[in-house]
Design a protein around this nucleic acid. Structure first.
Lengths: 145, 145
DNA sequence: GTTGAAACCTGCAGCGA
DNA sequence: TCGCTGCAGGTTTCAAC
C-alpha cells in the first residue's frame, strides 16, 4: 500500500469501469502493471468489489429513514445481522455506542412501504423498541466507503 | 425502465466491471444491446456512476461515527452541503426530521483524528451543537444506494 | 516494471421484426 | 423503436525479459 496504490484507488472510486490504460495513466504506470496492482488490491481485500451508484429516485424509492434500535436481552452482532439482512429495505446497519444499540439505514418506495418495513424490523427476534428519523434530503454522498 | 433494465442494474451492482457480454447474458441480451441499455441508464441518470467498494480498515481508517447536528439560524441545505463537503472525513450527510437538523456520517483513522474532524464540523458556520454516536461495528452494508 | 503478440472486447455500421 | 449480426479498432491478457 503506497502512493501508487492510493492513486489507483482514487481512480476506480471515481470510475470503476475505467480501462487499465486509464488507471495506469492516473498512477503513472503501464496498463499491465496497473492490472497487476488492481488485482492485488482486490485479492488482499483492500478493494472489496465494484458497484454501480444507483439513483433511488429513478427507481421510485423516494423515502429514506434511520431507525434507532433498542434490543431486548444481549443479542450478538451476528444474530442481529442475520435478522436484518433478510429485509431488503435495510440498506446499512451498525452497532453503536450511546442509548441505542444499533442504527439501521432504510430505503423504501413511500411512507406506507417504509412503515411496513419498519414493522418487519420490529417483529424480528432481538429488536425491542425503535425510534424512526425520516430523511428530508440527501446533502452529500461520497461513494466507495 | 422494465425487467431487463432491472436485471442490468442488478448485474452492475454486483460487479461494475462486468463486460457487456456478461451483462447481456445476465439480462438475456447480446453485448451491443446490453451496452445501449446501460448507456441509456447512465444518460437518464438512473445510474449515476460506477465506483469501487473500499475496505476502510485496509486503509487503516478504523473509526466511524454519526454526528447529530443542531444548526443555528435557518441555513439552506445548499449552505450546509457546501460547508460539509470540504471536510474529507465527512462521508455522507442528510437533513432529517426530529430534534436534530442533520445527520453526518464520518470516517477517521482513530479517535484523535475523529475528534479533530468533529471540531472542524463544529467550527463551520451554520453548525451549533453536535452529538456524537460512535460506531462499534458494521453489521450490514448493501452497496449501490 | 516493461515490452510484444494473440485473444478478446468495444463501438459502429447495416439490417430485420 | 428495439433487437441481432459482422467488421475495424482498441483493450486485456499472458508470456518472456
Amino acid at each position: 500500500m503506497d502512493a501508487i496504490d492510493e492513486a489507483i484507488i482514487r481512480c476506480v472510486l471515481r470510475n470503476a469501469r475505467a480501462t487499465y490504460a486509464q488507471i495506469g495513466k492516473a498512477a503513472g504506470l503501464s496498463a499491465p502493471a496497473a492490472k497487476r496492482r488492481l488485482d492485488r488490491l482486490v485479492a488482499t481485500g483492500a478493494i472489496r468489489g465494484f458497484t454501480a451508484v444507483v439513483d433511488p429516485q429513478a427507481l421510485a424509492w423516494h423515502t429514506e429513514a434511520f431507525l434507532e434500535v433498542y434490543c431486548t436481552g444481549n443479542p450478538t452482532p451476528a444474530e442481529l445481522r442475520q435478522a436484518l439482512e433478510d429485509i431488503p429495505e435495510v440498506v446499512e446497519a451498525w452497532t453503536v455506542s450511546g442509548a441505542a444499540d444499533a442504527v439501521v439505514h432504510m430505503l423504501a418506495r413511500d411512507i406506507p412501504h417504509l412503515e411496513q418495513a419498519v414493522q418487519r424490523v420490529r417483529a424480528t427476534a432481538p429488536v425491542g423498541r425503535t425510534e424512526s428519523v425520516i430523511v428530508l434530503s440527501r446533502l452529500l454522498i461520497r461513494p466507495g466507503m
